[in-house]
Write a protein that binds this DNA or RNA. Structure first.
Lengths: 238, 238
DNA sequence: ATCAGACTTGCACACCGTTCAAGAGGCGAG
DNA sequence: CTCGCCTCTTGAACGGTGTGCAAGTCTGAT
């Protein structure tokens, strides 16, 4: 074995560092190679693809979320803890949302998380498919929570690359905001961030609020047998 | 005014067609120019940026979601209808998730949707910030639901570009799946799609199920005064 | 000492978003 | 009619990207 030979793990963790620092656009194979002290194309021996690489990176991070001990806590705190862990993880690595929207992640780390989540809802008393659905519901909710911040992060990174742009962008957003405020008085009244800065329809504590609401819904559902429900139409009428 | 001059609207709708057909990687300025019968760079006179362009496209689509008449239906059906409209829209344009994770969308169309959603939850009886939070909760949930399909779409598009890859990818996924199934028996038992194809932890009807659960949670919340709730820690302990 | 294989390298290709100076075309003023 | 202006388009060019490929280097076993 050559003295200085690359490792898949080395590559992945270097990639994660680059991704955390500069977002998904900041990771180029050449930069990664430079970081590793190797030629850019050396990576291709250990990893099939760039997509594959960020997939590995993503799965690595899934594996690092710590999981609650189900014998120690009730299902609701367990679920809350798992959601919080995932939420925090997505917050620390905003590029993940871009990665996940580009390429599905199947991997050991992700499976580990899913498995534990399933166990939580089985413990709660959900039977069969209901456990899958309940688990997926909070999973999907947490993902959605991460989207806004991820977009903001990505935008900020991009703006800070060419300086001078930020203030022009702020001006654009402010103009947009006042135009919108004029047309939709309810929005102006509600969203305090409407005078300039950034306007987001998602308040900061949506995660806590929404998660609590979802778990409330689960509890009320566990009390009574599940009512039959017709699927909604996914097609827009016109 | 020159006879054949480009319009912002022309550009945006052409961009949407390209995006729908080939995903976000399939939209290149040169292809767009070709489609419009112009040079690639002509677009830059009407639009600042590529990011800007897909932002406009996204907002256009927000504007096309049809909104329920709040005088005709109760709040729960209204909320369900709005969520379904958004869900369908995201399903028809899978590239949107990638766009949204890359660049926040502020625009008239989005504002219109947000405003109406707010009205729904005001009608439901949510007061002040609670309306924002409730609205944001289902918003964020629907976004999360769209992530998986979006990723799948993007992957499929990419695979079908270079042929021969698809079957190799399927083989990889299948191998991965059996390895995972061996390690996590609970997952194998639960997820039927584990024998090959694609493995997703999110069942098909998660949208209907989760939405109903969320709205259940809202109803139980509307019944009693909101309990005080401490914010969860966003930091991982270590 | 030799040979096979594991790994690395540099070059090359095709494509990308974007800039910019130069050009073309219609329109109002003279 | 014609001139100049302003709006809009163009083609070339730049620096960057992911990746394929033939050639090279190093290491450990024979």
């Amino acid at each position: 074995m050559a003295r200085d030979t690359l490792t898949r793990d080395q590559i992945v963790s270097a990639a994660i560092e680059l991704l955390d620092a500069d977002g998904i656009d900041g990771l180029s194979m050449r930069r990664l190679g430079h970081r590793l002290g190797s030629a850019a194309t050396a990576v291709y021996w250990h990893v099939e693809d760039k997509d594959n690489l960020v997939g590995l990176a993503a799965d690595e991070l899934w594996g690092e979320v710590d999981l609650p001990d189900l014998d120690q806590v009730d299902w609701r705190t367990a679920a809350t803890s798992m959601a919080a862990g995932m939420h925090a993880m997505l917050g620390h690595h905003p590029w993940l949302m871009q990665a996940l929207s580009n390429h599905p992640v199947y991997g050991r780390g992700k499976a580990r998380y899913d498995d534990h989540a399933l166990a939580v809802f089985e413990k709660a008393g959900f039977v069969e498919a209901a456990a899958d659905q309940a688990s997926a519901t909070v999973f999907v909710f947490v993902l959605g929570c991460a989207l806004g911040p991820a977009a903001e992060f990505s935008l900020t990174r991009r703006l800070s690359r060419d300086k001078g742009k930020p203030e022009q962008h702020l001006a654009d957003v402010a103009a947009q905001a006042t135009e919108i405020a004029a047309q939709f008085p309810r929005l102006r009244q509600r969203l305090p961030a409407f005078d300039g800065a950034s306007y987001s329809a998602v308040p900061d504590n949506t995660f806590e609020y929404g998660l609590a609401a979802i778990l409330d819904g689960f509890e009320s559902r566990l009390g009574r047998p599940a009512p039959p429900q017709a699927p909604l139409s996914h097609e827009r009428g016109h």
